[in-house]
Amino acid sequence: MVKQVFKKPESLKENIYHYCPGCGHSIIHRLIAEVIDEFGIREKTIGVPPAGCAVLAYNYLDVDMGEAPHGRAVAVATGIKRARPDFVVFTYQGDGDIAAIGTAETIHAANRGERLTVIFVNNGVYGMTGGQMAPTTLLGQITTTTPGGRVGLRDGYPLDLSQMLAVAAGSVYVERTSVTSPKNVIKTKKAIKKAFQVQMDDLGFSLVEILSPCPTNWKLSSVDSCKRINEEVVKNYPLKVIKDTTQTNG
């Protein structure tokens, strides 16, 4: 008799991922699906995907989803949540989506303490459009629009959006994790779970920033991409709980 030790979460569809080999999106999708399953909230969860590689997240996550224009995911999610406070609403956004074109919407939603959970996937480039500089791109990093490397006083400095959001009085829980190792994946899942819990406890805004590899645009192997995150990226974006006021707010 065969014992099943690994299976597809209920909240994940059968479709095969279109993501590049070594991309972090597929892992993160699965983690979200697992968390939704574990809370048993599939029937009352609404997701808002971004513009970017994960625009097709609805092909994989088996919950109701509503598309948002580029950068406006948090605004659309605000409308859904305010109209139906009984729903659990999350957005799934990349760094260009949330930290460049959608900065204003995101900061103000956090400031209003919208009961939303943001999954912020930071890979330091615009992936879908072909690897252009993102707000989170590191100094000196070569991209298709910074061929000589990013220069702070010309191209701007790496933007730490999570740190900015932690300043907003309405944000309750902000944590940065990565998916570069099984240990980090487990930590990420724990963080996502906590972020959903914060929303369900009606405490305020919650966000998990996940450092994620983009081997294709970084022009590195999957292994080297993870190594780059562990050795370089974390120096700019350290993995930690950036804000947690669940105790004081609870």
């Binding site: 948002a68 605004a75 659309v76 409308g79 859904i80 109209a83 919407e105």
Partner: peptide, 10 residues
């Protein structure tokens, strides 16, 4: 965009 989200819920 907030309006868009609310409209999605009916």
């Amino acid at each position: 965009n907030i309006l868009m989200g609310a409209s999605m819920t009916g």
